[in-house]
Design a protein around this nucleic acid. Sequence first.
DNA 1: TTTTTATCCTATCAAACTTGTAGGGTAATA
DNA 2: TATTACCCTACAAGTTTGATAGGATAAAAA
Lengths: 137, 137
Amino acid sequence: MLSKKTKYGLKALTFLARRDVKGPVQIAEISRSENISQKFLESILLTLRKAGILGSKKGKGGGYYLIKDAADVPMTDVIRVLEGPIAMLPCVSLNFYEKCDDCPDENACSVNKLMIQVRDSTLQIFRHTSLADLISE
Amino acid sequence: MLSKKTKYGLKALTFLARRDVKGPVQIAEISRSENISQKFLESILLTLRKAGILGSKKGKGGGYYLIKDAADVPMTDVIRVLEGPIAMLPCVSLNFYEKCDDCPDENACSVNKLMIQVRDSTLQIFRHTSLADLISE
DNA sequence: TTTTTATCCTATCAAACTTGTAGGGTAATA
DNA sequence: TATTACCCTACAAGTTTGATAGGATAAAAA
């Protein structure tokens, strides 16, 4: 299940991407428009800024803004930053690999093979979907 | 992330499916072979039995056994019983649908559309993979 | 009939994670 | 210098997860 953190993050990003004017947008405005708890959203946007997806400006007239063109923000990046691994098992994750305690031989594990398939088909979608695709749909 | 419950359940099912002799197998044996806590596995197998995927026999010589041919046990069934929804969002789930609190209009939600794609591609795999496919791989 | 075996079932529990809140610190602008 | 709005840490309630305890029940064997 996708966490609310990720869902809210995606909604905030699409909100920013949809704006024609490219100035900074305050947390309060996004929070109001998208029905997201302001304080929770604050921490999410902070995470996205630290990941290099958003930029921010302090003080009056400040806020958050997209640092790149929406077409250059693939879903893989956003999901990995907010949700973590895309794979359904640590032993199948490309970016967050971890060995399973219970598996003596990963290559002999049938669950492993199944989850590699799922990972690949999900990756296929996330790699070919950018923030720009999200708003144009 | 796939829960250990689901992972253990799948490993137990493949263990049963791989056996040539079709008699009941005791929890203790599966637990030993697959490195799964016996008591935890007990509750998992019980769930699978109640879902009509496994049968059981009490007393000496008892245990669990597959109730159908492994080829007739699709991953969709197993995953839904053990893990719950296959979709990453409740508002996108076919079997466990729920409306999102924060979305006024589901059809206008870009996250919704993205997750429908992911759901469909994952479903595609689970629908076309049976327990028999799992052991033959 | 009694004992043994192995599933059945409920309750419980610690640890981890999620969602959200509180409160002050910091930098930019007016 | 005051105000604004992001920055950052800590924390807390609620839920989920993974696992354990302990006995009830049914079947087979002694």
